[in-house]
């Protein structure tokens, strides 16, 4: 009986349960005491991979510790590690890890509005959207080219057959060989995504690797931790870099976020406004007030502007 309930629970969690099965599950749960449900949950929880820390953070912490020491200690450490690296190379392939530990980090942050452009030491071009950051180590060109980023960025990666280019975003690792792609990974969003314009990349997350072809995008839901792959023409994904803003069936909450980033303003919505209402439309060369006016007509709200604050009221 418990085995059947577990099977139903698994389907329910995955979202593949039918209504009849859901009724059967509800019936069983109601008649099962707390301690039995508790032990099923405990088993499931123990099977869960521990925590959810993105793979990039560990390295960042190590170099954070190193940064506390002086330049000379750092230099000594570098030399020591370089020597050790040579010695270790014969024993095992530790070189990459050690040189990563010895490196300093460079972080580029974009402002509250608009875009900034960054050229990495290898010639890779990155356009960052507002409120985004990219971090790379000073010995970026030594081993694999690894960058850590959050927010949104468009990458045009310089070709280098010898060395991989790896982007570590909050929930995913993107492994690249010379290509163009867009990453959307703001920490406050419910999902992160990567859309590929040219070339080929693989995405690694929680032990699985997903190969991606051009004009495909991978969306990771932060609610479920699951990936989905779908087709795209990249029009929507890269519109933030052009003088256009494109929304396709997006909830108002997302529209507001995009406008905040694009124009560097803060938009507050009154509780009477339904943030899940969806909007579809393209704005070309429009000022913020032009766009708000169109949205006002669409949603029937009113607004007032005070400095950098916009308040939407019903």
């Amino acid at each position: 009986m418990i085995a059947y309930m577990k099977e139903l629970l698994r389907k329910y969690k995955e979202g593949s349960i039918s209504v009849e099965e859901f009724d059967a599950l509800a019936y069983r749960i109601e008649r099962t005491p707390d301690d039995v449900i508790g032990s099923i949950l405990a088993e499931d929880w123990n099977d869960c991979s521990q925590g959810g820390m993105p793979p990039g953070r560990k390295r960042r912490k190590i170099s954070g510790i190193l940064r506390k020491y002086s330049f000379w200690t750092g230099l000594a450490a570098c030399l020591f590690l370089a020597v050790s690296a040579v010695l270790f190379m014969r024993l095992a392939d530790y070189e990459a890890k050690l040189s990563l530990m010895a490196s300093r980090e460079v972080t580029v942050r974009s402002g509250n509005a608009g875009q900034s452009s960054v050229v990495l030491p290898d010639g890779t071009n990155v356009i960052l959207n507002a409120r985004s950051a990219i971090t790379y180590s000073s010995d970026f060109c030594a081993g694999d080219r690894t960058v850590t980023m959050s927010g949104e960025g468009f990458f045009d990666v310089a070709k280098d057959h010898g060395r991989k280019f790896i982007v570590i975003a909050p929930d995913m690792e993107i492994i690249v060989h010379g290509t163009k792609f867009n990453v959307y990974a703001y920490p406050e969003s419910e999902y992160s995504e990567m859309s590929l314009v040219e070339g080929s990349v693989s995405i690694g997350c929680k032990g699985s690797i997903i190969p991606v072809s051009p004009n495909e995008k991978v969306i990771l839901s932060r609610k479920t931790g699951k990936f989905s792959v779908s087709r795209t023409d990249n029009e929507l994904e890269t519109s933030w870099m052009k003088d256009r803003i494109v929304f396709v069936h997006e909830p108002l909450s997302h529209v507001v976020e995009v406008l905040e980033r694009r124009f560097g303003v803060q938009i507050n919505c009154d509780s009477g406004i339904s943030l899940s209402d969806r909007y579809t439309g393209t704005f070309k060369d429009c000022s913020l007030t032009d766009i708000i006016d169109v949205l006002r007509m669409h949603y029937g709200f009113s607004y007032r502007i005070k400095d950098n604050h916009i308040i939407l009221t019903h």
Partner: peptide, 15 residues
């Protein structure tokens, strides 16, 4: 908190 939040959230959300 940062380490365990995503996992615990996904676990609870799934139920």
């Amino acid at each position: 908190y940062d380490y365990y939040y995503p996992g615990l959230y996904q676990f609870c959300y799934s139920y």
